[in-house]
Computed example of a mutant assay.
Amino acid sequence: MKTDDLIDMLSSGPDAGRPTRTPRAALLPLLGGLLASVAVMLMLLGVRSNLLEELTWAAFWSKLLFSLALAAAGWLAVKRLSAPGAATGQLTLYLGAPILLAWCGAAVLLANAAPELRAELFWGRTWRYCPLLIALISLPIFAAVLHIMRNRAPTRLRLAGGAAGFAAGASAAAVYCLHCPELSIAFVGFWYLLGILIPTALGALIGPRVLAW
């Protein structure tokens, strides 16, 4: 068989012309995962009673913007790593910049705080379960992202799985802000990040198996 004949046969096979998934088709699972994560948070934890008051505090917005910035970087990583050949050189900068800013803010906060208050600013009252709650809330979003990525063409499967977990974890951290009583950026910059890294590690672990195509 000639090469041209083989190419013609493959291009006219049963998979030829299969419509690619539209952005709306990807949006629906993501929206469902996000709503499910919000539902998990509401059922298990609930929204803070003084949330409206906290919306006027800069400390609340600092932890929310930290989470949203990491979520945006995570979703960009998911988008790039879902397709072969996409540029990924600047992802480290996008992922690292919010963390570096938070840590700088934490250093300034701790340096200016009274010595007897520094431990409380870092440990808070919820460090024992905060990371685990963020990881738990992230699971519906995590499953939705993996489902979407399976229908695309990721080639660096471990990195792609890690990106899926990071995006889901950071999105869950933003949802968790509606309940979390902690306001110190020293707490958020470490314990929130730890909660985000749990699904990141899980995604990197299962990525080669779940995302293989």
Rank of each mutant, 00 (worst) to 15 (best):
V78C: 14
L76H: 03
G85T: 06
G74T: 05
A87L: 10
L31R: 06
W127N: 10
A73E: 03
P23L: 11
L100S: 11
G33C: 08
P19G: 02
A135Y: 01
M1N: 07
Q90A: 14
P115Y: 13
K2Y: 03
L133W: 04
G13P: 03
L45C: 07
L117K: 11
L117M: 14
A107M: 15
A69E: 07
A77I: 06
C104S: 15
T22W: 00
L101R: 05
T56W: 07
L70A: 10
C104V: 15
T56Q: 09
L45M: 12
L93P: 04
L81W: 03
E120F: 02
L133M: 14
L91P: 13
T92W: 05
L110C: 00
E54Y: 07
L35N: 06
I134W: 11
E120C: 03
A87P: 12
L76Q: 13
F66R: 08
T3I: 11
Y129R: 11
L34Q: 06
V40I: 08
D5H: 08
L132Q: 11
K79F: 14
L101P: 03
L81R: 02
A111G: 15
W103C: 10
N112K: 09
I99H: 11
P131Y: 00
G96P: 08
N112C: 11
E54G: 09
C130A: 10
G33T: 09
W123E: 06
A102E: 01
P131E: 01
A106V: 04
A59N: 01
L121V: 02
T3D: 15
F66N: 03
R48V: 07
L51P: 05
A26W: 03
L10F: 14
R118A: 10
L91H: 10
G96C: 14
T92M: 05
N50Y: 01
L52H: 09
L51M: 13
A102K: 10
L44I: 07
L100H: 01
D5I: 06
T88F: 09
A119R: 14
R125E: 15
R80K: 09
A59P: 00
P84R: 02
A36T: 03
L45F: 10
G46F: 02
A26R: 10
T3N: 13
W103A: 10
A97H: 00
A26Y: 09
L95C: 14
S62T: 15
P19I: 05
W123H: 06
A87D: 15
Y129S: 12
P29R: 00
L109R: 00
D15Q: 14
E53I: 13
S67C: 14
W127D: 12
W57M: 12
W103P: 01
G13L: 06
K79S: 15
A71C: 09
S82C: 05
A69P: 09
G33M: 02
P23A: 13
L30V: 01
I7M: 08
M1C: 11
T88A: 07
T3F: 04
A58I: 08
A106H: 04
A39N: 00
K63Y: 04
A83M: 08
L35C: 03
P23Y: 04
W75N: 05
I134S: 04
W123N: 09
L44N: 10
S49F: 09
A86K: 05
W103D: 03
L42F: 02
A87Q: 11
G46D: 06
L45Q: 11
